[in-house]
Write a protein that binds this DNA or RNA. Structure first.
Length: 466
RNA sequence: GCUCCGAUAGUGUAGCUCGGCCAAUCAUGCAGGGCUCUCAAUCCUGCGACGGGGGUUCAAAUCCCCCUCGGAGCACCA
């Protein structure tokens, strides 16, 4: 304890310096070799972007932005057979990039550039760096099954013949010879002037193969960084093709089903793109595999949406409460308690309200309850329908007796269906919810939801989180 | 099996390059409390980690070795 005070007297400026160095750095770590920076994100569009893609989109684009460089979105859609691209997914990637604040400076479709790969393949063959193998598939498989190398093919494969037409109508069956990722990516990264590549560590081996091409052409390979797998606790392992199949069987309602880790789903639920950006830039680039909980995202998101989210009452699985001798009145709860200037909602009440089944279950006879922003009641009978008596007096009576405050909805309120990662919940909400279509609001004592739409007098909402 | 990586609180992260500012950062989480007509937000307080074992050194989260655990690759997928 002595050295600090001593240092303060003999060299106060030195002490200040100590304090400065302890400041933790925020955001992404500096990029090595960063002069001019061009980065890309190169997905196969066989499904919409997921949380995992978001990491690639956000970190690559964020680095490009930080160094005033360029960010390229490149679709590696060169396998119409095993990983056939989904036509909608091209658009989805663009939409989601935009939503994530990562508008690409350039968009490339590998399937548009097959001729370029042919040209380079020819050149490579002429340089003696490649050759054509004429073994039939059966012969090759034979060698493979016996664990022997094909006499012609001890090397990695750059192109193969596929007779499956490409899903893009403008490509269709124009090509039979398709490049594999190693070749396509190598050539493209060079042509696009990519300076830094950040991608999954599952592609480390691919890098060795790609460098082979770079040596033949005398190109300079970009600097590479790899990250481990991100596993989200709440979502098991789900491959894009598995999800696609499950959607076809009707197990999921679509790619934006709230049970799925797609960006479209999170967006529909009211997760803010800034929450994802913050999360992934703070994760940085690390080869360790990480397990994340959605709580990390929810925590960030809650702070961002709370200051705007209007408050409403919603009672899932409603139970009727008939209040004897209640004078008709108008409840006026605040739209946003932290900021009363935003005004009130208005809910007319006669002598009956709905409360959630969960609250109803906890009621006891003779219990004094506060209906939030309405009045106090005393429970007199607990049945399928609950009976109560109107109690005069203000909230302080409840406070003094340590009573509970519960929310409620008018019996003639609007039907609401909330889609959650765990399933659907139905109930009744107050009418003014219709004024917040497409907005993120808070159902008091329930959670934050995004009001998605209204159809046939029924509101559909997606749960973001508690 | 072979090759290559990695391991800091419940979770994620900073620190490791170049050993002493580390009695280890920040965020989230959890617990308790204040405020509040929400179980939200907000404010305060607290909890919680260097995988194990050796070595080098005056000094090790940091350097070296071994072990354990975890991961990735070993495709005519991306």
């Amino acid at each position: 304890m002595g050295w600090e005070s001593e240092l303060a007297t003999i060299a106060p400026d030195l002490l200040e310096e100590l304090g400065e160095k302890r400041e933790p750095e925020k955001g992404l770590p500096a990029l090595e070799g960063a002069g001019s920076v061009t980065m890309r994100f190169a997905p196969n569009p066989n499904g919409p972007p997921t949380l995992g893609s978001a990491r690639g989109i956000i970190v690559n684009s964020e680095y490009a932005r930080q160094y005033h460089g360029r960010f390229i979105l490149r679709f590696d859609d060169t396998d119409p057979k095993t990983k056939p691209p989904l036509l909608d997914a091209y658009t989805w990637y663009l939409e989601d990039c935009r939503w994530l604040g990562a508008e690409p400076d350039e968009v490339i479709l590998a399937s548009d550039r097959i001729q370029i790969y042919y040209d380079h393949a020819l050149e490579l063959i002429e340089k003696g760096g490649g050759y054509v193998c004429f073994c039939s598939q059966r012969e090759f498989k034979e060698y493979k099954d016996r664990g022997k190398p094909c006499p012609h093919r001890r090397d990695w494969v750059a192109f193969r013949v596929l007779d499956t037409p490409h899903p893009r109508p403008e490509i269709g069956d124009r090509y039979r010879v398709w490049p594999l990722l190693d070749f396509e990516s190598a050539v493209e990264d060079h042509l696009l002037g990519i300076t830094h590549i950040i991608r999954g560590k599952d592609l480390i081996d691919s890098e060795h193969r790609q460098q082979y091409i770079y040596r033949y052409f005398n190109w300079e390979y970009p600097l590479t960084l790899h990250w481990g797998r991100v596993k989200i606790h709440e979502f098991g392992k789900m491959s894009t093709s598995e999800i696609g199949a499950a959607i076809k069987t009707g197990r999921y309602t679509g790619w934006d089903d709230p049970r799925l880790p797609t960006i479209r789903s999170l967006r529909r639920r009211g997760i803010q793109s800034q929450a994802l950006r913050k999360l992934f830039t703070e994760l940085g680039v690390n080869e360790t595999d990480i397990g994340l909980s959605m709580e990390n995202i929810y925590g960030e998101n809650r702070k961002m949406i709370d200051e705007n989210a209007r408050r409403y009452f919603f009672t899932p699985e409603p139970v009727r409460v008939i209040i004897k001798d209640a004078p008709p009145t108008m409840a006026k709860p605040l739209l946003h308690p932290p900021d009363p200037r935003r005004g009130h909602r208005k809910i007319p009440v006669k002598n009956e309200v709905l409360i959630s089944r969960e609250d109803a279950k906890k009621l006891k006879n003779n219990e004094l309850i506060r209906l939030k922003d309405l009045y106090n009641i005393k429970i007199t009978k607990i049945n399928k329908t609950i009976e109560a008596e109107y109690e005069k007096g203000e909230i302080n009576i409840i406070r003094e007796k340590n009573g509970r405050i519960i929310h409620w909805a008018p019996p003639d309120g609007i039907k609401v269906e909330v889609l959650t990662p765990k399933g659907k919940e139905s109930g009744i909400g107050e009418h003014e919810i219709v004024e917040s279509i497409e907005q993120v609001v808070q159902f008091e004592r329930y959670g934050f939801v995004r009001i998605d739409s209204i159809k046939n007098g029924i509101i559909t909402a997606y749960l973001a989180h508690k």
